[in-house]
Simulated scan of single mutants.
Amino acid sequence: MNAALVLALAMALDAQVGEPRWLWSRLPHPAVLMGRAVGWLDTRLNTGPNARTRGVLAVALLVGGAALIGWTIAQAGWVIELLVAAILLAHRSLVSHVAAVAHGLRQSVDEGRRAVAMIVSRDVSASSPSQVARAGIESLSENFSDGVIAPAFWFLIGGVPGILIYKVVNTADSMIGYLTPRHAAFGWAAARLDDVLNWIPARLTGALFAAIGGVPRDWPNISSDARLHRSPNAGWPEAAMARALNIALAGPRSYHGKVEDLAWVNASGQQELRPADIDAALSMVWKAWGLTVGLLGLVGVIFWVF
């Protein structure tokens, strides 16, 4: 079976099953194993001088190990490839967590804060209902790219080795790719490679949102807004989502007790957001998921038949 059809089935399986607790309460999730590998290399290699060189070595070991494990898994056939891809995709988990933010906000602002604190790193302890909703929509937009479109893209390009390489690099970036005294040099390679691997998927995600939202003609404005983001990639899905829903995203927020005066994305859009806006963003993401699965399935069937 070809990669496009396997990927379409894997995306459908992930959306239906997600991450069953009965399984991952008994076995370590692959993401957990990747995190342990990153942590072990951080402990062993992030010492002494030449931290950047040691960080490059760490990433090379992670990528090489992922490629080797992925190649070995691929020898088992397409059914195993499908299961591995489904496990490494995160659509069901993502939409469930963000839907919980909307549900929490409908109960109280404290419930909304508790729910959104599970998926964002910013300080939400004093966030207004609108800020909580905005954080949820931003996380949904960015993580649909990182957790669904990017791993799907790299599976399509490189099969199981491709998706494993992407996931281990993305895990490394989330753990050591920060400008802290300990990781600014050591995590440089992980952060830069993650930027490279997400470059195309982030823009594909933005294009999906723009097309589904009926705002493809706004692409020049989406491009301009995306460049306001401090990440070279995260701004694209956020900017497209903002234009598609005519809402304002980004803006000032607090990290570790310090307020950062970030620029607004689509500043002329609606700034006071509500749970209904989260619902609209979730609908957008489901449509983007459906369009992606449909296109992959169509391409896969064509290649299978002809």
Rank of each mutant, 00 (worst) to 15 (best):
L9T: 02
L9K: 07
D14E: 12
E19C: 02
A31R: 01
L41S: 06
R44P: 08
P49Y: 01
R52S: 11
G55C: 08
V56L: 10
L57K: 06
V59H: 10
L61Q: 04
V63R: 00
G64S: 00
G65C: 12
A67H: 05
I69K: 07
L82P: 02
V84P: 13
A85V: 14
L88A: 04
H91D: 02
R92N: 07
L94N: 09
V95G: 00
S96L: 05
A100V: 08
G104D: 10
M118V: 07
R122P: 05
S128K: 02
S128T: 15
S128Q: 06
S139G: 04
L140D: 09
N143A: 03
I149D: 00
A152T: 14
A152W: 03
F153T: 13
I157N: 03
G158R: 09
G158D: 04
P161M: 01
D173C: 12
L179G: 09
L179M: 07
A185M: 08
A185V: 06
G187Q: 07
A191P: 03
D194N: 08
A202I: 00
A202D: 05
A207Y: 01
I212G: 04
G213K: 10
V215S: 10
D218E: 15
L228E: 07
H229G: 07
R230F: 11
G235V: 05
E238P: 12
R243M: 09
L245H: 08
L249D: 12
P252A: 03
Y255P: 08
E260K: 15
L262K: 15
A263R: 12
N266A: 07
N266K: 07
A280K: 10
A281K: 12
W289G: 02
G290I: 11
V293A: 15
G297Q: 08
W304T: 15
V305E: 02
F306D: 01
